[in-house]
Design a protein around this nucleic acid. Structure first.
Lengths: 148, 148
DNA sequence: CCCACATAGTTTCCACTGTCAACTATTATA
DNA sequence: TATAATAGTTGACAGTGGAAACTATGTGGG
């Protein structure tokens, strides 16, 4: 095992706790839970995304994904429409209200991050961004941690 | 709003998703959920910690914390004992089995992190560690994100 | 062209979680 | 000593996601 790895793991896990479900009392903003918000972000980034794609992006089953989308649809943040190419496929699209919600929440988080880094020099901020980009690239490449 | 903040926030959130509850299908290792594991880590770091301290460290209610400790105690990973100084206070201590479990899980995560960083030069690894330390110090200072 | 099979999504049943509020037990205070 | 404050537990409850069965649509071999 290489040097520093246990420390790095502990640091990532602690940081993640603050940005995870427990970080904000179950509601990330208004009426959205964290999964709902993450799913909404996916839909925002990739319009006409399918249920399964959402599920695998978030590491939940298609059954779970279907329910997350149910909730988002009930709140009028997304719309389901049948794919023209394949009648089985359900294309999910974000609504104006959805974009509004996502924007507001992202602002709130960004404020929080801004507060975190308020004493960082511009160079240090750039370095933070670069490190995080490299870490995120790595986790994307590795995929989710497999449970035993 | 300063430059890079939205990007940094998005990167942290994506990274956190991989290390959060969804990152490993609800079970982080063997028979522990993520909250249970985080609570166990707290107990390990600070022996004779109280229920409320665990709750506030993890941002859950004392009721929730009590149940997490219930589960850990049923699995024989921790022990409850009454405080000698104050009969109301419940000191929680980790057992040998608990230490074993925590060690095994930490190893698994550390392997994963090691895989993430396998192509990083030693200097880059040090830089990652420093950045994460600074970020964690910042979140500790700011505390949990308040929901609206 | 039809039937078997594959695939996308939904639904039902279920177990797990954490909160709220009420409760018990203990300690502090006036 | 009576009252209030505090630590922790418990019961009722709602939210959540998984497994498996189900529906509906598409595909391919005969």
């Amino acid at each position: 095992m290489r040097k520093n790895m246990p420390e790095i793991y502990n640091l990532i896990q602690e940081l993640s706790w603050y940005f995870g479900n427990q970080g904000f009392d179950g509601q990330c903003c208004g009426d959205l839970s964290l999964v709902e918000f993450m799913a909404l972000k996916k839909v925002h980034k990739e319009d006409d995304i399918t249920i399964q794609e959402i599920g695998s992006a978030l590491n939940i089953t298609k059954s779970g994904a279907s329910k997350v989308i149910d909730r988002l649809e009930n709140k009028a943040y997304v719309l389901r429409k049948q794919s023209a190419a394949d009648g089985r496929v359900c294309c999910v699209a974000i609504t104006g209200k959805g974009i509004e919600a996502i924007t507001k929440i992202a602002e709130r988080y960004t404020d929080y991050v801004d507060g975190m880094l308020k004493n960082f020099e511009p160079d240090a901020v750039d370095n933070v961004k670069n490190v995080l980009e490299e870490l995120v690239n790595s986790v994307r490449k590795q995929g989710f941690i497999k449970s035993i």
